[in-house]
Design a binder for these strands. Structure first.
Lengths: 359, 359
DNA sequence: CTGAAAGCGCTTACAG
DNA sequence: CTGAAAGCGCTTACAG
């Protein structure tokens, strides 16, 4: 490496040139607002001049060693690759993080170099917490290592989780999409259009955000005083993978149950059912309204968003932004604190929602 | 801030626990290949165990202060915002940089926090070279501050320029798109299809990459022994902005000059001319072939790529990747060195190229 | 193969 | 308002 060590002017050189102590140089250069040190305007100018003349440039590593802060925000993911394609669900989170870091004047450290010898992501490489390079970090993505998160938290390393909120240890801060309210909003909207039988379609494998959506779904029933039969929950077997018959089964089930609107946890399945309806002669949305609630777990990698499909969309960019704001709050706080924020989802109406058939 | 200072175990604690010196701990933990220090397998295990038990985590700032390396690659841009939208010309460069950093096991520091009080990007904030947080950096984008670059280079800070190669000081390393060869390839292709009069269309404002393209254009004439009249260069006034008449002027000029193929520096203008041709009853590509050479400077922000337009495409992603590889070479080199690499462009044939009219 | 110690370049109490 | 000095937590010659 081309090393300039020893040739580059240091603080002490500037101090000598300006005929002051290094403390003064430090105070002038870093212009610490915390500093109780006040420097006369004349001295200040002299120091600045000397620094300029010598081409002095503070060493950031030394500064952060002595000062205890790097002024860096980190972004980490357990995903195999950093989200880089716009079709990657986590991509938008990262964009929001970048934007907010930029707005806040922070540099952003992407922990791209955090794979162990087996190619798996880990925070602790050779037992060393790589994240501490940054003052705090945002953890992005659907995969997590709960043990690592717990250890991080125990170490009191400041971080905010984004992209999921289940399977993460207590005390960990997060920002998440409010699927509950969003789903309730969707159902309310359908009810307003005149629907009186709306089914919630979920996979066999449940997780927290599915529970949230179902809660939002049920909530509207209570709100409107509907009987349980008006809001049936249909569960299909996820284990079988992409079962070609699944969409048809669901369609006939819907007809039998006299359901006029289908609310799908999975965008993928919603899209499939819409397609199947077309070939089965069922008019969407004339006879059947279809809404997707934003779960992409069944999506094939590279699959594009289904155009025209009514859907609940995660406010991923805003979540990313909020996570950075939250992290900065955590960093500024004297006490250890935990924050949880739910951000409202967006409803894209699309062309698959309409009033129920008048019959 | 939640500070763990003083509570977190340090190297010395591990050393005491393992009954060795800190030098040994350092050697074991950092597993420096350079290290002439050899540690017995048993000692090694003891140290690792102690580190594990204590939850020891090396401090990176200290490490890079003492060792002189941070093992971080930086990315900087003079653009107002970091490229984040796929329609941003510089976005792909950044993706390539991220990919390559990930592959090389480096963390990537995005210098998002580098705007001064007026909102302008600077490398030197309060006289301090922010980039030195990273061992070396990639500079991305179309804007540059030549003075800062010169200063950086004088300081012997290792960096590689990407996205442009003119207006940058001597001795600075860069990776750029090879528009010369690409343009030659385009013209050769047109000649093979039977074209014998091909015009190069350029703006009044010239810069290095336009010169490159024109050189590639002229090169083929020499190669094939064509007279100068076969390869005219048409210059239009850029000063007038988006002049609505420009496309028509060019079309009639082309007809008068008996030109059967138009090669445009500017993608924007190429697209406009194609559209104008349609409404003027000129068949593209039946009567006139149109090719764009990848200059986007006239593009409106947010404008999408013109679909179907034959064009030369900058290998931006590969350039980003190569820049990282180059930087890593520079970092590993004992001597100060400069490297320049031109990466081949891609030709997208599209639907605007055909043999000339048979008449 | 191992240990004691200097030094990396700052910041920040602590005295004056 | 200013100075001398300790200390941040490592790495790396240099001795043993």
């Amino acid at each position: 490496m081309v090393s300039n060590r020893g040739r580059r002017p240091r603080q002490i050189d500037v101090a000598k040139a300006a005929n002051v102590s290094t403390a003064i140089v430090s105070a002038v250069i870093s212009s610490t607002s915390t500093g109780t040190i006040r420097v006369s305007e004349e001295t200040r100018r002299r120091v600045l001049k000397a620094a300029e003349d010598l081409g002095y440039v503070p060493n950031v590593a030394a500064r952060s060693l002595a000062g205890g802060r790097s002024h860096l925000i980190g972004a980490f993911t357990y995903q195999q690759h950093f989200p880089r394609e716009s079709r990657d669900f986590y991509f938008e989170f990262l964009l929001g993080i970048e934007e907010a870091a930029e707005d806040a004047g922070y540099n952003l450290l992407l922990f791209t170099g955090t794979r162990d010898d087996s190619g798996n992501r880990t925070v602790y490489r050779n037992g060393s917490n790589m994240l501490q390079l940054a003052d705090g970090s945002i953890m992005v993505g659907g995969q997590v290592d709960p043990k690592e998160l717990a250890r991080l938290h125990a170490e009191r390393y400041p971080f905010v989780m984004v992209g999921r909120r289940d399977s993460i240890p207590d005390g960990v801060s997060w920002v998440a999409a409010d699927y509950r309210s969003g789903t309730a909003e969707v159902v309310r909207k359908l009810a307003e259009l005149g629907h009186r039988r709306i089914a919630f379609v979920q996979g066999a494998l449940t997780h927290e955000t599915v529970d949230d959506r179902r809660a939002g779904f049920a909530e509207v029933g209570t709100e409107l005083g509907w009987p349980d039969t008006s809001l049936p929950v249909l569960t299909y077997d996820t284990a079988g993978g992409a079962d070609a018959n699944r969409p048809r089964t669901l369609l006939s089930l819907a007809r039998r149950r006299k359901v006029t609107a289908l609310v799908f946890e999975s965008n993928y399945l919603a899209d499939q059912v819409r397609t199947a309806a077309a070939s089965a002669g069922v008019d969407v949305p004339g006879q059947l309204s279809v809404v997707a609630l934003g779960d992409w777990s069944e999506r094939n990698p590279g699959q594009q968003v289904a155009p025209g499909l009514a859907e609940l969309t995660s406010p991923s960019r805003q979540i990313g932004r909020e996570a950075v704001a939250m992290l900065i709050r955590l960093l500024g706080s004297q006490t250890t604190r935990t924050e949880h924020v739910m951000m409202p989802c967006t409803i894209t109406t699309g062309s698959t929602i309409a009033p129920p058939p008048s019959s």
